[in-house]
Design a protein around this nucleic acid. Sequence first.
RNA 1: CGGGGCGUAGCGCAGCCUGGUAGCGCGCCUGCCUUGGGCGCAGGAGGUCCGCGGUUCAAAUCCGCGCGCCCCGACCA
Length: 523
Amino acid sequence: MTSVGDFPNLTRSHSRRGLWETESVIGRRKRVGRMSEEMKLPKRSEDFSEWYNQLVLRAELADYAPVRGCMIVRPYGWAVWENITAALDRRFKATGHVNAAFPLLIPRSFIEKEKSHVEGFSPELAVVTHGGGEELEEPLVIRPTSETIIGHAYSKWIQSYRDLPLLINQWNSVVRWELRTKLFLRTLEFFWQEGHTAHATAEEAEAETRQMLDVYTDFAVREAAVPVIPGRKSAAERFAGAEQTYSIEAMMGDGKALQAGTSHNLGQNFAKAFEIRYLDKTGVLQHCWTTSWGLSTRFIGAIIMVHGDDQGLILPPRLAPYQIVIVPIYKTDEEKASVLETAQRLRRELVDAGIRVKLDEREGMSPGFKFNDWEMRGVPLRMELGPKDVAKGSVVLARRDRPGREGKSFVPQQGIAAAVAQALEEIQKALYERALAFRQANTADPADYAAFKQAVEKGFAYSWWCGGAGCEEKIKDETKATMRCIPAEDPISGQSAPQAGGAAKCIYCGAAAQEKAIFARAY
RNA sequence: CGGGGCGUAGCGCAGCCUGGUAGCGCGCCUGCCUUGGGCGCAGGAGGUCCGCGGUUCAAAUCCGCGCGCCCCGACCA
């Protein structure tokens, strides 16, 4: 398990005076504390965008940087990313990939070698024109992705079919000069991994492309509890330079789609542009078939927007930096001593069981404050431990996914590690099921174009489509919905995608259709 | 790149219209007190009023020009 250090305190910067009465859950003693609307986030249902922005800042996942469109990933956010990278890297290694590092700076001429690649990326390139006080003879591009520089290296490294397949990944950051940015979802610089592979045959490359899409799907579902729809992209949505692009698409809490990972079959396009060739068994010189695939810090945005609620973030237990936080409660010094002693003993037990634990020993903050603080930061499980619990040999466990009293239960200290582990499993499962149910409830199979328009107002439309770029374009102009992907499985029923028949008509033009596609407004 | 909003203490804002001592809340520091859902009291520290120029005896305030950020539309992981 990943070990995690301490994170700076949440800034309590939005307080405003206001009174509310609360009743303690167990003691039934009334007290009056400060609480107000302005300490809370905007309601998710009322202003999703502002809810998201404030949540990211206040949960201390990230902050704005001095350069427009750039972000600082704060320790707590980076800890989530570390858990994501660990879960993915494990899967990459298990499928035979190795890691390497390629340079940040790329000769401009490299980008220009593959025609559609240039066209796709040139508007969003950052270019270095000076170095060491001198103007450079050839400007250097800051990588927007590394196909070109890796293609250059592969052309040197690959000579024979014995050198194939070449399966390399790199963890890095890339820069794309985006016009409109949002923390995690779209920033000028973002962190990701990019896998780049070279193969001897078209079939192998296609198999690799799909295998990595499966890896992303497995990661999203099992680690992040984010249900995704894997599928194939339209030509318009395809990566610049790819023959075929696949993606996993997730539904956010506002019904919009987010592309959460992509896998590209690059065919021989880059192999031809960079002369990546090998001698086959029969002595014939062939171009390789290459792939690339990536998943970025954007995925953190997906986790936020899929699971979060009005109280703040909810992290899936498998990716949470802290899976459980222990909040000690005491009045007197004697109580403090015995509560903390018990708390430390329980923490030890949990740590020994491989559970990521935070014991919140901060002084001068009320337990109530700490409850809210950790809820904002999405810790999946909270243990409340006070003198009464010490006396009874029990603790209170509170589930983040079930707010308030409903999520609380008394649990014996005896066997705490097993109980916590089980609760974490249940939360992981419940988060996935809730997200899936939400997506199902907001995915429609509209009967006609009028129903289609309504469907994409609140979620996904799964519709027959003639495959024509014209219809895709008009749908986008008229509804703001884009073609997200053509799933291999029906996302509503979970069965194999339906075969085209006589009744299969394009939702827009009515012409005969072969495939059913997901359409949605997207981030 | 078009439309809108904003820029004053760490954060959120008032002051600007009608020019003259820079304020409030939260946070922060110290002490006491409290702690089962965002405790209380007292004292304290903290300012390039986004920048530059202009008008004026005097500019946070009026005028001009910049810059930055956020939100909404055209492109994108």
